[in-house]
Structure formats: C-alpha cells, structure tokens
C-alpha cells in the first residue's frame, strides 16, 4: 500500500519558505495515503500561480492547466475516467477571479471531485497585486489607495448554489486540514475546501498570526449541524468568513451517475468498436 512518501516527488517546491501552500501539499499527501489510494489512481489538476505548482509536487498524475481552468479540466478528467480520484487545486485569483464562473457550474453538477483553494488574499507569483478575496481597503501595487471592491464571497456562493460539501481549513493547522481533505475526498460529489494559506512575502496583513487570532473552529461549537445549509450561511456571515471546519455536507448523486450517458464502466475503458450492423441501423434511421 502506498504511503505518504509515495505521493512526494524528487523536486523541491519553489514556494517561499513558510508559504502556506507547503501545509496544503503535505495535508493532501497525507490524506490520500491514509485513504489507501495509489499514486496512479489520483490526478491533481491545477491552474496557475504559486498554488498551481502543487500539481508538480504531488506524486500522483498531474495536469498543470491554464489560469482559472482547473475545474473544467478536472471535470473532463473525471468524466473521461470516473474511476480516478480527481483533485482540483488553485489559488483565490485562479478560482475566484478568472475561474469563478466555472465554480458555480461545477457546484451545480455535483461533479465528483475535490476542489482545494489556497486563499492568500493576494496575487503572489506576480509579486503582490490585489486579489478577488482581498478585503476592501487592502493596499497593494494595483490598489495603492486601497481596494475599492468588496471581496468575493465564494464560499457563500458555493453554499447558495447547493454545493454538497463545503469546508474551510487553515495552513496553521495541518492536522485539521488533513482530516478535512480526507472527508472531502471520501465525499461522493463536489467538495470545496477553502484554505487560508498565508503568503508570507507579499501579504503583510493576513498573516499566520492574524488568522490565529481571528479564525474560530466549528469543532469547538458543539451545537453546529453541518446538515443545515442556513446555519452554514449564518456562521459565515457572523464570523466574516473566518471559520474552519465542515460547513455543510449533503449526500446526493454525483454528476457522472446521473448525466446523459452515465454508465457503470468508465468512458476510457469502453470497447470502442460499434458492430457494423448497429452502425447500419443508425444510418438507416436517417431516411
């Protein structure tokens, strides 16, 4: 059986020392190994930016796709071979800026994949510009006077559109993150895990210490019911989104089980030859 080591690669990540993405990678490697998955059964699909490099450092198959397009790529991979475990991963700019449209539709489909967003509230690789999740008033190279826009409420959007699994995690708590990833991968359907993953180089506001002071854990609230979508929205509003744990979980069929052409055999494993007589019958239906 594969161990966490099998999900590591030889190349060292090029992230800055202390980057929150190290924790995300480690938690993911640990989670898939503890679920008993083999490296060839797992595909990590990423967009671009610092977070997008995760596909290169994760020891399964990978697809380092285009900016904002990790979800449609991952959707295609899953529908191409539904037997694979598919992880989509990227940053807040990638997922909630250019890729925001895809998020809503992946949620609607309930496509069976795990979507990990490394949310650092800034554009890191391009050396520090305002991101869709930067708070209003956030100062950066592209908002010298402070950001004029409200931050996008991606998690709430996923909740409102019926996401069947929604959680938040924090790179300062790898243990909790690992458990959340395990739950998300195990979940049959779409799961979004928004991870507070601080950028230690360019974001001097939303730092590890800042999150430690401000984030609360749902686990500490005994009365919380993850089957109650309204409660999830309410807690997000009350905490200004600064909350970790499983916000919402609901069991329903995954897209590949109910879509047009759903089949128990993966598309990539189908016999492609159509009997000549079948083809002739199809031709004759066009008369």
């Amino acid at each position: 059986m594969a161990t966490m080591k099998d999900f590591r690669t030889e190349n060292k990540p090029t992230w800055c020392p202390g980057c929150g993405d190290f924790a995300v990678l480690a938690a993911l490697q640990k989670a898939v190994a503890s679920l008993g998955l083999e490296p060839e059964e797992v595909v990590c699909v990423s967009g671009i930016g610092c977070s997008g490099k995760i596909a290169q450092h994760f020891g399964g198959y990978g697809f380092h796709s285009l900016h904002g397009r990790s979800l449609p790529t991952a959707t295609g991979v899953k529908l191409g071979n539904q037997d694979l475990t598919v992880i989509a991963a990227g940053g807040d700019g990638d997922g909630y800026g250019i890729g925001m449209g895809h998020l809503v539709h992946a949620v609607r489909r309930n496509i069976d994949l795990t979507y990990i967003v490394m949310d650092n509230q800034i554009y890191g690789l391009t050396t520090g510009q305002t991101s869709p999740t930067s708070k209003k008033g956030f100062r950066s190279k592209t908002s010298p006077e402070g950001a004029a826009e409200e931050p996008v409420k991606a998690v709430e959007t996923a909740l409102v559109n019926g996401a069947s699994f929604v959680a938040q995690a924090f790179s300062g708590d790898v243990k909790q993150m690992t458990v959340l990833f395990e739950e998300a991968v195990r979940h049959r359907g779409f799961s979004l895990i928004n991870c507070f993953s601080p950028c230690v180089t360019f974001n001097k506001v939303n730092t590890y210490d800042w999150f430690r002071e401000n984030v609360i854990r749902l686990k500490d609230r005994e009365e919380y019911d993850s089957g109650d979508r309204d409660a999830a929205l309410s807690v997000m509003r009350k905490t200004h989104g600064l909350v970790t744990g499983i916000l919402c979980r609901e069991e329903r069929p995954a897209y590949h089980e109910v879509m047009t052409g759903a089949h128990s055999v993966a598309a990539s494993k189908m016999d492609l030859n159509i009997p000549r007589e079948d083809m002739r019958e199809i031709f004759h239906s066009f008369r």
Partner: peptide, 16 residues
C-alpha cells in the same frame, strides 16, 4: 471555454 477544456481533460484521461 469549459467545453473545449473538458474535452481536453477527458482525452488526457484516455477517452476519445
């Protein structure tokens, strides 16, 4: 955008 890239994802996974 999604249509084309989904088809690329499926091809990558071994499906025509």
């Amino acid at each position: 955008i999604a249509a084309c890239i989904m088809a690329i994802g499926a091809n990558y996974a071994g499906t025509r």
